[in-house]
């Protein structure tokens, strides 16, 4: 049975975990992965991955500018904003 090291995965998906949470999630994920591993028994030789339920690919509209939200509307839910922009902490020192 595989043993997930949760920390690097949680780091990748940007979720901070408390110690207890980390332990529970690791146990649960190991159980789940052991269950998921049954697909390794299926013969998939020559089978193409199915990415979507329908056969539609690359739907593009004409390159015409359409209507879009005014900045105020787009910023309606921003946690912090200033001068029609989203405010974040300094990134480059």
């Amino acid at each position: 049975m595989e043993n997930i090291d949760v920390d690097p995965i949680a780091e990748l998906c940007r979720i901070a975990l408390a110690d207890e949470e980390r332990k529970t999630i690791a146990e649960q994920l190991n159980t789940m992965l052991a269950y998921m591993a049954q697909i390794k028994a299926v013969d998939v030789e020559g089978v193409e991955p199915m990415l979507h339920a329908s056969a539609i690919h690359s739907i593009l509209r004409d390159d015409q500018p359409g209507e879009s939200f005014p900045a105020e509307t787009a910023l309606l839910n921003a946690p912090e904003q200033k001068n029609n922009q989203i405010l974040v902490p300094r990134i480059v020192e």
Partner: peptide, 19 residues
Amino acid sequence: RREGFGPEVKRRIILGTYV
């Protein structure tokens, strides 16, 4: 994300990131 997501959502995001 720690404060905003509940346990099931965290679990699935982590499992999805793993696979």
